[in-house]
Design a protein around this nucleic acid. Sequence first.
DNA 1: GCTGACCTTAACGTGAACGTCAAGGTTCTG
DNA 2: CAGAACCTTGACGTTCACGTTAAGGTCAGC
Lengths: 165, 165
Amino acid sequence: MLPETTLLRIQDVAADTGLTTRAIRYYEEIGLLEPAARSEGAYRLYDESDLERLRFIRSLRDDAGFSLAQIGQLLEDERARERNRIRLRSTTDRAERRALLLDALDRVDRQIETLEHKKARLDQMIDDARARKAHLDGHLAALDAGLEPHAEPAPVREPRQEPGR
Amino acid sequence: MLPETTLLRIQDVAADTGLTTRAIRYYEEIGLLEPAARSEGAYRLYDESDLERLRFIRSLRDDAGFSLAQIGQLLEDERARERNRIRLRSTTDRAERRALLLDALDRVDRQIETLEHKKARLDQMIDDARARKAHLDGHLAALDAGLEPHAEPAPVREPRQEPGR
DNA sequence: GCTGACCTTAACGTGAACGTCAAGGTTCTG
DNA sequence: CAGAACCTTGACGTTCACGTTAAGGTCAGC
């Protein structure tokens, strides 16, 4: 039984991933991925792992907001991991195994640091938004409870009527 | 005592915020902020709140990875909040107060949702990276403990000597 | 009041990330 | 073996987010 892993043409891949065919070709142009195969007439043919990779790229782009250059770096690190894994299997030299592992650890640490930094900023923004929401909720509850909180605390005398529109 | 809040010229603002003067002018062009004042000779003059706003914009751009259009939307929501707050102070009509608060809540909820979605994706990526790191750490520990984990599971016969560099 | 360092607007240039033809080759279906 | 529907490789166009002159006005110190 041959695997015969149902290869898809670019348009189907586009429909499946939510990318455009142009974007997919562009990602190939800049080295983010190669189609699993080409047909006799040079049609690009993609397998399931290609789809996963493209979905991953799209998520990094849309959800995480990385540039394609950054994505390329992340994927490059991933490829380096793969290469390391292969070399690891093929050597028994303790020193070399150690070096490969340390190199891989270094890459992962850098990735984590990048992501953590981004996350920290997001967390802070979410906290701010939640605080604003809580504040609003409080006012609304007070209003519904019948007590206007501080309807007009200090009679603001004429907000200076700025000429702005 | 007049406030006289030490206004800065654009170059100083640039140095302080880590942006370029061009970027700051561009942000004004697309409506992200207006300098607090202009000098007699039309020099842009910025106050402390302008600096905060610019630092916020930069953080959203660099750390969170938002486009300037998205940032504009977030800041627009913020301005809407301000306007709502002012209207809230100036009205005593229960129904209107309620409507304004509900509108503000809606905006905040949308902001939170956007940010949460981004964060969720980042969290997943961080988890993945941590898992890889743990895996590597395990291998390294095993190696240092003297036991080669699975040195050569299957005797890989000649890695095919790829012509790579 | 005159440099020199700073600022203004206006305009064109640039790299990233694609969109959009154009001119032709390929695959499938009847 | 047509014809439609898809694909290919160019190649040029577009939007975003600025960079970079160009041509002049402003401000601070001497």
